[in-house]
Design a protein around this nucleic acid. Sequence first.
DNA 1: GGATGTGAAGTAGTTCACAGCC
DNA 2: GGCTGTGAACTACTTCACATCC
Lengths: 238, 238
Amino acid sequence: MANPRPNKRQLSEPTISRLPVYQRIAESWESRGRVAIDSSQLGELAGVTPTTVRRDLAALGSFGLRGSGYDVSTLRERIADALGHDREYGVVVVGIGNLGRALVNSSNFLTRGANLVGVYDKDPSVIGTEVAGLLVQDLASPIVSATVAVLCVPPAEAQAVADRLVEQGIRAFLNFAPQVIALPPGCAVHYVDFSIELQILMYHVNNGTGPLGGGVLHSLGITANSARRNIQRNFEKS
Amino acid sequence: MANPRPNKRQLSEPTISRLPVYQRIAESWESRGRVAIDSSQLGELAGVTPTTVRRDLAALGSFGLRGSGYDVSTLRERIADALGHDREYGVVVVGIGNLGRALVNSSNFLTRGANLVGVYDKDPSVIGTEVAGLLVQDLASPIVSATVAVLCVPPAEAQAVADRLVEQGIRAFLNFAPQVIALPPGCAVHYVDFSIELQILMYHVNNGTGPLGGGVLHSLGITANSARRNIQRNFEKS
DNA sequence: GGATGTGAAGTAGTTCACAGCC
DNA sequence: GGCTGTGAACTACTTCACATCC
């Protein structure tokens, strides 16, 4: 496991999930030659309140300029530093079906230090084929050293595959299988479950209509209230 | 917009995201002939505490049997009812690249009332081809009536595409583009952002090691603390 | 002036602990 | 006896409001 950074304060989970959003905005402004952005602008583009933006960024140390906002390149650097973007790390993808193949070929997936270092499957007809420049290896063979495993296997196999990967030294998992997995202490998992996302959306479509016509849903730390407020602000303008 | 259900209490967002997990477990137990499940068992399988399970289920009305737990088929029915699984609804997928194609062909995606009713792209070389039994339509043509749109377009186009779909009557979005979108009141959006998920995982790998070896990450309403507790419980047994 | 950064207040969600019921 | 359902306590996060600083 990589050695932890020194004395960084622990960031809250919602804050962590919003930082990458701010960072993309900072990069976009930087590339368009803008020098500074303030918390209202950043909040509007990120779908959160200005106060939330300021709290999030204050947790990275005070680098805002009172009166004018945040310098976009400092902003980008601070977030990159907080998220460890200077560090390269290896990713293996296990289960090379439609989804696994789409992920490794997606330009939105492996960014900011993530390097694809191995692709695995158990199907003999897939093993040995090439995806994203790598040959698919037999899942039964030793797993290359990596930091994160992306699981795209059928749900019934997810636990067994995870167990084996933990044995082989993997400690972080991005699990696309619709299946909760148990891991020993020291391991981390995030779930991406398409069907559940649709079900949550449909709950709100069926139930969500309040007096003013319903809510915008949270995700990525963007809460219903903060997002709704921003959205309404947008549309009042037009 | 579909007429809202009558007098259902509003469920909290974390509860909503956990219900589908409980439901899958209920179905699995039912299919294996088990009659009842208690909050500890359900919590262990879902990665949350028994108290959280009881609070979540109590919000659906009291149907547990004191002394023996929850009847699995009642459990399944109550959750299906709360989530509106008796209602069929239409889904359109916009942007038929690798990801869009993988999604519509995935058995994990369109479940529980979701019906694929249209697939759209703007690329002439894709329009007219067949995916998942449907012909890809020109995004510029009228959009078929549907409840949810799945956005798999490049981030730079996401806002414009969403605007157009809102115009065409769509009110709920599952957005796979790494781009926050603004929507008018009454609309709902959920974001699925693979790159952000990896970044969050890496934050924890780099910083997460506490005295006992770090944390399990939240997602789907499974919090670090509750999951860690359950995970440790699992491993103490072995 | 105009924006940040932050105590204080407010709100939401989780966990404790136990009364109530099967 | 055992497990649910829930008031009360606690914890986490957001929002308000304003002192602070460029």
